[in-house]
Amino acid sequence: MEVNVTTEGQKARITVSGNIDERGAEELKRRFLDLDIPKIKDVVLDFSEVTFVGSAGIGKLLLLYKNLAPHGGSIRIENMSKDIYTMFKVVKLDKVFDISAIQ
């Protein structure tokens, strides 16, 4: 799994590629902790190259949400594969994240 983070002012764009399995989730958490959370309002995750998100990965996304939400931050996840998009809807994560599937 590879993670690429770019920040600009209040915005962070995170591009992930590969499998977000348990090891990938730990890497994701490490990268989230590197962010200057109090300064960031909008996080955009690009999932166009993500093939699988396990429960550990979802846990880290929720962790990021819980850190951002208290000061009005939000997370958008773009370009999800159809399977991942459906899975997020089934577990109501579309109410937590602003999600969209790949076109």
Binding site: L62, V90, V91, K92, L93, K95, V96
Partner: peptide
């Protein structure tokens, strides 16, 4: 059916 995991949000939060 669509439902949230347990242990993430209190029952009066987010659906």
């Amino acid at each position: 059916y669509s439902s949230m995991f347990l242990g993430v949000f209190a029952s009066d939060q987010v659906e």
